[in-house]
Design a binder for these strands. Structure first.
Lengths: 225, 225
DNA sequence: TACAAATTATGAATGCGTTCATTTTATTTC
DNA sequence: GAAATAAAATGAACGCATTCATAATTTGTA
């Protein structure tokens, strides 16, 4: 049997999250007061701080849940990647960004990103950082898959390229969050434009079928180190 | 003749900046109190807010000055670029990062980056964003220079590649600021490792002298749009 | 069931960034 | 140079996140 404590804790946590989500969306992150969230969750202010280290921490908890979904959405792309680098990347980008404004507004994203940078030691900040790392690895994995299928040049360092792509996604998403006038569609367009050169460069040219000779030919593209 | 007002204003501003710098370094950004900074600058608390919109704003003012120096240091590299993509990039990276911990510690950088994300509307946040854009353009300019000198493939979109490199620099610097155990040297090493694939891919291979035929040859590398 | 120990909840108090009505100081006007 | 206007300085007051000493509740023990 599960103890009373555990039950109450889960219950409190659920109510806190519900209340916080509502207030953040209704009145904005900055205007949402811990007191109101606590009241709404039927707990005392002090109790809130038994569950989350600070105001930013609960936002990062919420964002982390969303990022987990994004990770799952991306996983599908990795498992059934479209058959070209450009296409695979734009599909992945689409999965990553499409739902970004469903549960959070830009202010919330800005605050989340800012908090994770400013307070790297809090629990949910670390969780968020770890999830970011997983997304970065997911991009690398996608590139590796494409490499194994013969769409990416074999001498490419997939780790470095994957990280680079992820870093770009992250930076452009941050730009997007900072600019209230930028739409999700515009974000996607910009990101895809930005990745085109890299996507082209790491691609094995069209005329090479997927499973023929994959060695670089007349142009030596680096020493492969 | 310059009025009394102007003189006093400049004087106050100088003292505020001096005091803030000292406190931020001595006791850390979070522990530095506006009241102490104001006292130390011989002004009232309210006066501080006539000069800076909020606590983060003055940090961004300080950081902006530093970034301007970084921009100047980078300009030298653009004007006399080393004669290979790899070398030029690592030189630029070195200029960008070498002085990063001279006037600021990591907490200050974290706060600066976080504040610029969270409050994009404040004056010095905008200034900082603009300077970031200038750095991004500087990277693009360097790549364009290398392209004109025949070290970078002519079909490369220097804007997209430059932005991409800049985004990476920025992200990795943020990672660096978040990780107290990472040294500047380690940061440089990681950044250079990360950029190696791109640097190699956009490079015109060695055996091509600088000013010979620059058309892409047997490998078709994109349609050049 | 009674008691001790550990965990969790509480909300008044604290600290600090920020605001704003008021005062002081500089500039302009006549 | 006195009065009117504009600009800047002031610091007490405010709002809100966070803390902490104390109380309440649950769990372990005999």
């Amino acid at each position: 049997m599960v103890g009373i404590r555990e039950t109450k804790k889960a219950d409190n946590n659920r109510r806190i999250l519900e209340a916080a989500t509502r207030f953040f969306l209704d009145v904005g992150y900055d205007n949402a007061r811990i007191e109101d969230i606590a009241d709404s969750a039927n707990i005392a202010v002090g109790t809130f701080y038994n569950y989350y280290k600070n105001k930013g921490d609960i936002l990062l908890a919420m964002v982390s849940m969303q990022v987990e979904e994004v990770l799952a959405a991306g996983q599908q792309v990795v498992e059934h990647p479209p058959l070209s680098v450009e296409l695979a990347l734009s599909t992945l980008i689409d999965r990553y960004f499409s739902l970004s404004l469903v549960y959070f507004n830009k202010e919330m994203w800005r605050t989340a990103v800012a908090t994770s940078i400013q307070r790297p030691e809090t629990p949910f900040s670390q969780r968020y950082t770890e999830l970011d790392k997983r997304i970065s690895q997911q991009v690398s994995t996608l590139v590796r898959c494409l490499q194994l299928k013969g769409f990416v040049r074999p001498e490419i360092d997939v780790e470095a390229v994957g990280e680079m792509i992820f870093n770009n996604l992250n930076m452009m998403f941050t730009e997007f969050a900072r600019d209230d006038s930028m739409s999700v569609e515009e974000l996607k367009r910009r990101v895809i434009w930005q990745h085109t050169p890299l996507a082209t460069l790491i691609s094995v040219p069209d005329q090479l079928p997927a499973d023929t000779d994959l060695q670089p030919r007349s142009l030596s593209l680096g020493d492969g180190t």
